[in-house]
Design a protein around this nucleic acid. Structure first.
Length: 290
DNA sequence: AAAGCACCCTGTACGC
DNA sequence: TGCGTACAGGGTGCTT
């Protein structure tokens, strides 16, 4: 176990990393949309071949050069760049960043893929941990087919959510992380949504009352839309930044994630941490009922 | 369907 | 000071 007293108490530290989830990906996508739309890709450099998921890195380079960007959007945690020939999808995973910078700007560390654009800028994919992946496909569905609904979509209703929940018997926390159940939640916003709903991470999905189903539905939508408005969460490690390298603001509103041992904002009880399916879950043992 | 695990990777922080 | 090791994270794939 961790020796809590010996750990530095810096920000939300504790070795946890902020990683891109729906709000961060949405922020990056909307930033890129403003500056990338209409640009043509005139060159590509691949420094780490495994960053290219498909096709082969040779085919990727050959096919993407000369393409023009038509639009930029998001599906789950994927950034979807529509080209005049196919789609470029990017999953940032844990440490990936997409930044749009002048080509003259000094190269950053951990640069894996660089796109030269026709306006003298570069789209740079940095990825310390090398888990991020780029896909070049004819149809984005080839990559995103298995994803569940978009939690913030207008047509995603409480009734839709109820139907999904009652068909599941597992625990809430792993379920919220399952991208085929709902697309876009990661560890931070899953923990924050459960706290906001007053539901314990070990709670069984099919055990929720009608009122609790509504609480969770509203919590997920409120937490996510608040984080989108705040341009995402940047923890003290500076892991996530937007396409211009700027930090988000939602870290100031984090209630439980990474706050193990610190007082609950509502009842002052120390926040607890458990491990579920190899992932940490943070919660208030008083405010969140099993 | 659910739960557990290893894997991919590296920076950080720890113990010695 | 320096070295070895545990650990965090998302998603996939495998096994139970």
């Amino acid at each position: 176990m961790w020796n809590l007293k010996s750990r530095p108490k810096v920000g939300l530290g504790w070795g946890l990393r902020a990683m891109p989830e729906l709000p961060e990906v949405e922020t990056v996508a909307s930033d890129l949309r403003a500056h990338l739309t209409g640009r043509r890709i005139v060159g590509v450099t691949v420094n780490w071949q495994r960053s290219i998921a498909r096709p082969s890195h040779e085919e990727f380079i050959q096919q993407v050069i000369g393409c023009q960007v038509r639009s930029v959007s998001r599906r789950g945690k994927y950034i979807v760049i529509e080209l005049d020939r196919g789609y470029l999808l990017v999953h940032l995973k844990m440490s990936g960043r997409l930044q749009l910078v002048p080509a003259m700007q000094p190269l950053d560390t951990h640069l894996r893929v660089v796109f030269d654009l026709d306006d003298g800028h570069q789209l740079r994919f940095q990825d310390t941990r090398k888990f991020g992946r780029l896909y070049l496909v004819d149809d984005p569905h080839q990559v995103t087919a298995g994803l569940g609904p978009e939690p913030l979509a207008d047509n995603f209703t409480l009734d839709d959510f109820r139907e999904l929940l009652v068909r599941r018997t597992g625990r809430l926390k792993p379920l919220l992380l399952n991208q085929s159940f709902l697309a876009g939640l990661g560890n931070i916003y899953a923990d924050e949504s459960l706290f906001a709903a007053g539901l314990h991470p070990l709670r069984k999905a099919d055990s929720l009352t009608l009122a609790e189903q509504a609480l969770l539905y509203r919590a997920i939508r409120t937490v996510l839309s608040g984080a989108v408005a705040g341009r995402g969460t940047t923890l003290s490690d500076g892991g996530y930044t937007d396409a211009a390298g700027q930090a988000g603001t939602f870290q100031h509103r984090i209630a439980v994630y990474g706050r193990t041992g610190k007082p609950c904002h509502r009842c002052q009880t120390p926040i607890e941490r458990i491990v579920l399916g190899g992932r940490s879950a943070h919660y208030c043992p008083v405010c969140q009922v099993v």
